[in-house]
Design a protein around this nucleic acid. Structure first.
Lengths: 191, 191
DNA sequence: CCTCCTGCCTAGAGCCTCTAGGCTAGAGCC
DNA sequence: GGCTCTAGCCTAGAGGCTCTAGGCAGGAGG
């Protein structure tokens, strides 16, 4: 009986597939082992435990996602860039619900901080926002607003939170418009 | 050995406590049974299965949450009402992370639709927004924007998503301000 | 050619959900 | 007071999951 050829990379890739099919929560080392034709105990020589697999999946998905977003934003500015960012974000969340869910788990901050994907994400977001003429700390506040709205919308959509008959794509476009006006009329301290 | 006196209500209440302590995901029928001094199989005569317990908890938490929000919003209007809504929302999410997580699970839409809590939530939100002079479908779009931002912010906060040194309360206030300006300058179709 | 290490294995503990079937105390009826 | 019915608990057991400990074999490198 030859070796099955499991590796961390193949494991994470398989986990990504499985997450999109059955949900991030339901990705199981047992099921992955079955997929590789291997006993589940064997996977523990490639990955410390389930938690480690999940954070690897999270970093993988985060990188994949920011690649798509970067490609969409490239060469655009202002409202165009914002819309492209938003569109790519939501499209990834739709196409890869399991991987997207993975990006939202709590991860050791030291791990996240020196992950290249995170740095890239921050860079792209901040440079996109600089077009609105914001300075710190408004810049950080605006980034948090955008992330919150984007994530919240996708999360609520994913759990079936939008029951009203109104088209969800139209609401999304409106939300992006509204964020644009919020950014252009950003509330400054008056004094 | 007398009866332990388990009931659906006590079960849900205990689950709510446990969810806030160990996280919604980690609420387990076994652990609840241990808490009641009862074998886990016994709980299945009060609740069909884990899923049913979870949706019961979700409806319970949803009702509790909208009660707090309603109390906070009462007697206020416009930006005041928005800020009160937002504050009560986030405070509940902070104080009861497990229950809040419960409110975000996917639930059978027919169950949700005729839950009184849901109707109340919709009523309060829509009436709060009418102060901004919006009509359908903008009203629904605006509700979705608010829910998305509120939920997204709390979710990201909960998973440690805001690593920057900027104070998270200040960013929240700014976000609420920004939403207010977005609502007052709501993007209309120009034609 | 030999050694070592990698990649797999078996065995087993522990925790979880959920089903099937049975016993019993107390409530309601005659 | 006796009778029945049922709610609320029980034991037994199957099956899925994570994870540890220890073993074996085949291919790569000295």
């Amino acid at each position: 009986m030859g070796r099955a050829g499991v590796s961390v990379e193949r494991l994470v890739a398989a986990a990504a597939e499985m997450a999109d099919e059955v949900g991030f929560e339901n990705v199981t080392l047992s099921a992955l082992a079955r997929g590789f034709g291997v006993k589940d105990a064997s996977l523990y020589s490639h990955v410390r435990n389930l938690k480690e697999l999940r954070t690897r999946l999270a970093l993988f998905a985060g990188g994949e996602m920011i690649d798509r977003i970067a490609a969409a934003v490239a060469g655009r500015a202002g409202k165009d860039a914002l819309a492209a960012f938003a569109g790519a974000y939501r499209e990834y969340a739709h196409r890869h619900p399991g991987r997207y869910a993975a990006t939202q788990i709590r991860i050791d901050q030291t791990l996240v901080a020196d992950s290249p994907a995170m740095r890239r994400t921050a860079g792209i977001t901040y440079s996109m926002l600089r077009a609105y003429g914001l300075d710190e700390p408004d810049l950080t506040d605006a980034v948090r607003l955008l992330r919150s709205t984007f994530h919240g919308y996708c999360a609520l959509e994913a759990t079936g939170g939008f029951a009203a008959p109104r088209d969800v794509d139209a609401s999304w476009d409106k939300a992006v418009d509204a964020l644009h006006t919020a950014l252009t009329h950003w509330p400054r301290e008056e004094r």
